[in-house]
Amino acid sequence: MDYLIAIGLEVVSGIASLVLISIGLAVVFGMMKVINLAHGEFLMMGGYATIAASKAGINIWIAILVIAPLVVGLVGLVVERLVIRHLYGRVIDTMLATWGLSLLFIGLVTTVFGNTTSGISSPLGAVNIGPIGFSAYKFFIVAVAVAVIVTLYLLFKLSRFGLIARATMQNADMSAALGVDPARVYAATFAIGSALAGLAGGVLAPVTGVVPSIGAAFVAKAFITVIGGGSAVLVGTLSASGIFATVNQLASFATTPVIGEVALLGAAIILLRLFPRGITGRFFKGRI
């Protein structure tokens, strides 16, 4: 029984992590049809921002929840202005350019911080469920994922930005018809997506530690989750994360973490073959 609860908790926190890793990319893909392959490095920079800030004496929670998204959001603004904006409508070129950015950021961070693993200890202790110890920090990860989803849902449903964003998702010309400059919508969207990546990087930093090359581990998962989810940002990310993380965790339990990883990737391939336009290209059409 305790064992089942422990597995359940692992699955839930696995889903939450995957949601966090992917959501920033999903927002950008859903609204702009841009795949940002530097997304993993955005998480990596969020991690470094967190660690640097907390080493500078800033409270760890502020470092994770405020500094990381802020720093990476700003980086996103700059990237959008200098690179993304010039490539709208050229999907593959955007992927290639952001792939270049990914290498560039790895190089930059390596030059500044060196090629070693940095870490901070996980700020919460452990809780015991029966005989099994369970890191309390995982509850925090789940809480952040839930908060992010709820906030985005409200943002899309209730705010003026959300209205414009949904209009843009359906049809890029629509926002122009609503009297908004699409370029500004895109810039704001990209900044939000980047900030979310920064937040995820900050939240995960105590768990994974950071190295300049850690982005590669994130971006592939985020990429397939977003593509697997399809064009609906929230429903797509949630459903794809749900499936992939469950497969991953269960397979990891049954075998080894590496096989768990392989199972996740295999599930992604099968899913994309069954639904070549992602889950929400097939179900939940027109949702956010």
Binding site: V83, D93, A97, G100, L101, L103, I106
Partner: peptide, 19 residues
């Protein structure tokens, strides 16, 4: 100079300026 820095920079610049 870091290798990634140069490769990445070149890739970005080529896509933007010499597509």
């Amino acid at each position: 100079v870091n290798n990634n820095l140069v490769l990445g920079g070149i890739l970005v610049i080529v896509v933007l300026l010499l597509p």
